[in-house]
């Protein structure tokens, strides 16, 4: 049993009268601990695929088994629990809550999971030092650089120790050097056993993954293992 098993996934968007087939017949198996990059032209369905994997969106057809369990038929509350406990998501535009400090942003998943304040404190402090944000805990997002923001977002995505980390163009809003740092950070996390799936435009970054999936027109065009 693979960690992720997609079987004939369809995702169709209704745009006025026309239908957009964002994903067509996508079947895919990903083992726990893999490092996968998803590349392809804009509009080829990369984000749609990642959103489905992260349970942020639902397919029109097909099944998605996560760790052996069919998650497409789960109710909203069970899906929320899976997102909370098994999945970490990193967005291109960071998606930090602007009024909250770095610490508070990182603590959000712990808060939603109802974890006690004392444990939250130690875990967030650990994460801050792990991600090189030691002195930035009480800064709000607008007081942080782009790289720091993305590190806060990654810290938040991993604070619940999820089984997989999904990143949609995590370096898209960063300069090259900062992007390298963030990529290295994600790879370190993968090295500790977390499944890492990265959508990227950057061929250089895509090359670094052990497994590279290429998408076109909502289909998987190639899937190469190194």
């Amino acid at each position: 049993m693979a960690q992720i098993e997609l079987d004939k996934i369809q995702r169709i968007f209704q745009l006025g009268d026309s239908e957009v087939h964002a994903l067509q017949d996508v079947s895919l198996r990903i083992e726990a601990g893999e490092y996968v990059s998803v590349m392809g032209p804009s509009g080829s369905g990369k984000s749609t695929l990642l959103n489905l994997l992260g349970l942020l969106d639902r397919p029109n057809d097909g099944t998605y088994r996560l760790e052996g369990r069919d998650v497409t038929t789960l109710g909203p509350d069970d899906q929320a629990r899976v997102r909370r406990e098994r999945i970490g998501f990193v967005f291109q535009s960071f998606h930090l809550v602007p009024r909250l400090t770095a610490e508070e942003n990182i603590a959000l998943p712990l808060l939603l999971a109802g974890i006690a304040p004392a444990e939250r404190k130690t875990r967030v402090a650990q994460a801050l030092s792990d991600f090189g944000l030691g002195t930035r805990g009480d800064h709000r997002p607008d007081q942080l650089s782009g790289g720091q923001r993305q590190r806060v977002a990654i810290a938040r995505a991993t604070i619940m120790q999820p089984a997989m980390l999904l990143a949609d163009e995590p370096t898209g809003n960063l300069d090259r050097a900062t992007g390298e740092d963030v990529t290295a950070l994600l790879e370190t996390l993968n090295g500790r056993g977390v499944t890492l799936i990265v959508v990227t435009h950057d061929p250089h970054m895509g090359e670094r993954a052990h497994r590279r999936i290429r998408m076109e027109d909502g289909r998987i065009q190639s899937d190469t293992q190194r």
């Binding site: 942020l56 929320a80 809550v97 938040r156």
Partner: peptide, 16 residues
């Protein structure tokens, strides 16, 4: 709304 989306992505239930 996007904050609500984020909270849901982080695992918040509709009830929360």
């Amino acid at each position: 709304t996007s904050e609500i989306g984020l909270l849901k992505a982080l695992g918040a239930t509709g009830r929360a």
